[in-house]
Design a protein around this nucleic acid. Structure first.
Lengths: 338, 338
DNA sequence: ATGAAAGCGCTAACAA
DNA sequence: TTGTTAGCGCTTTCAT
């Protein structure tokens, strides 16, 4: 209304223009000062950076990302359920390694998978999307491909053009487990599975069945759980009740194995490993705890993440390269439960 | 060189302009079609959305965030070490609740805390930054305040203008633990602490000391660990060796309590709770596992996250409101280890 | 070496 | 109700 009223304008974020004015140079000079390998007088650069520091200026990454076509440095990470320790542990490594590549992880998922969230994040011009474990709605995959956003999948294989996957060789892992159980003298062996809608479970199950057959054995039972401790416990209760004769148990992941061991000891009067051998899958940190010392199949996280980063870099460098599937070899880790 | 060579231009992301042209409307009409509560002919909106869907268009969130001053919907989350289950569990809830608010979480930290990462993320015009646990470099706090970025701190209290905190009432928690140990008939009680550089440990320690004094008891020992299972185990080994007479142990978090219980049973021939009571802190999911059934002090995650979201919303609505500190009341959860 | 100017894709104030 | 216009803050030719 009247010019006497100074607008109580909240001091906006310092921009390159502010720095330019204060330093007596052009906006472009400021931009150059923050970019390696650009023509700019050595002294001038120093003085600009000084002024910028005084003012508390830092380039707006949003504006930069908008400008740089196809290099927003934003990477969406759709994590599996963080209640699964494997997912939590691998997420930490993933975040760390993405930063090494200069990427910023936008993390979604972690519990109940909200499909709208993962579609919503596509609103950002992502450099890539990482799908960790879990069931990935097909629609999401379609949208990513339509938007030409590179997809790196881990924990399952998605053999499609433009999608790279890295996944444990689950069948081999199951074979190793059966081999170890047989070597321990077990013959009446059962499988305690995870969520049947996930390929990891299907592959481990198939590997188990095949290895048993190869060993001339018939599975005593094939159960399914949900990859959780509680699920493992309740399924193990039924399993040990209905089939008290079993002497070996291969579980689809470590959490279920721990649940099963708890039930065996507390409710079924079965000592592990004396009267029952149990082998898990993944080798989460807890499995290494001396008090637990779970025999398991290592699903190597460091190697998995390394390969994911390798695939990511390769695809970013050449978006049209053929899609790749990398299988990580598992390893049997002998501890105290078999 | 010659116009006969069609440039092998990688099809760019579909923009509002593309949709506008195809639909025969203006760019603004397209923008309006995607914004609730704008003037736009019903039919026209439908047809625009139809064309957009055909083309696979979705508004570029970067451009939108650049435009909307102070509403990028980006929130940086600096998480504590995900090897601590408490941090993992709360991160999952945090991500979920932030999405409910329409915010996108950029997650950093999770393991080795890289200070440059947390400074680097300030390049984005964040709506807010969430600091979860751990030690927060002062420089980070300064930069945030300088940039006028709201800071929500959890797991410690940072009583400064513009910073809101929500934190468990650690002293009361320690009192509850001592009370429970005393009620269980324990008198020779020790404290197995976490990282002394963290306020959570200092408060729990202080609360322990005060409660012991109030009960007319003298602590047998005050040890320090690192909040990890392994750290708890090795400290407990020393503790039980040097002070075999102790009959009660209050641990600074659940992980250390589990480590201590493991050592007690496996190496020191002390049955829990028969000859040694152990109480943890946090009430992580594992503490509830029947096989573990850890008596502990609940550090309510749902309530913590709810309050964080409340503080966040309030600060976003009024950036100048006085900073607030919310203390979450702890609760003793009696299970099988005391 | 450096400034001017164009544009990245979007929203919002202003006209019509 | 709708189109035109002006930025948001930055990077990058293009001149100079």
């Amino acid at each position: 209304m009247s010019p006497s009223q100074p607008p109580p304008t909240r001091p906006h974020r310092v921009t390159a223009a502010d720095v330019a004015k204060k330093a007596g140079v052009s906006r472009s000079a400021v931009s150059r000062a923050f970019t390696e390998g650009t023509y700019l007088d050595k002294e001038k650069r120093v003085s600009i950076l000084q002024v910028a520091a005084d003012l508390g200026y830092r380039p707006n990454a949003l504006a930069a990302g908008l400008q740089a076509q196809g290099r927003s440095n934003l990477v969406a990470v759709v994590t599996g359920d963080l209640a699964n320790h494997y997912d939590g542990e691998i997420l930490a490594k993933l975040i760390h390694r993405l930063r090494d590549l200069g990427k910023w992880p936008m993390v979604i998922g972690g519990g109940e998978m909200t499909e709208s969230d993962v579609l919503g994040v596509l609103g950002f011009p992502l450099d890539a999307m990482i799908l960790r474990g879990g069931s990935v709605p097909d629609q999401v995959v379609e949208e990513c491909l339509k938007l030409q956003i590179p997809l790196i999948v881990s924990g399952r294989v998605l053999d499609r053009p433009g999608v790279d996957s890295v996944c444990c060789d689950n069948e081999t892992g199951a074979e190793l487990a059966v081999g170890a159980l047989v070597a321990a003298g077990r013959r009446r062996i059962a499988y305690l599975g995870g969520r049947q809608d996930l390929t990891s479970d299907r592959e481990r199950r198939a590997g188990f069945v095949a290895a048993m057959a190869a060993a001339g054995l018939t599975p005593v039972a094939l159960f399914s759980g949900d990859y959780s401790f509680d699920g493992g416990a309740s399924q193990a209760r039924q399993l040990l009740t209905q089939h008290p004769q079993i002497d070996g148990l291969f579980c689809a992941n470590d959490a279920m194995a721990l649940g099963a061991i708890a039930i065996a000891g507390q409710e079924c009067d079965r000592k592990v490993p004396e009267s029952l051998s149990v082998i898990g899958f993944d080798d989460i940190a807890m499995a290494r705890w001396p008090a637990i010392a779970l025999s398991t199949i290592r699903n190597d996280m460091d190697e998995t993440v390394s390969q994911m980063m390798r695939l990511l870099s390769a695809r970013l460098a050449d978006p049209d390269s053929p899609s790749r599937v990398i299988r990580i070899p598992p390893e049997f880790i002998a501890r105290n439960t078999h």
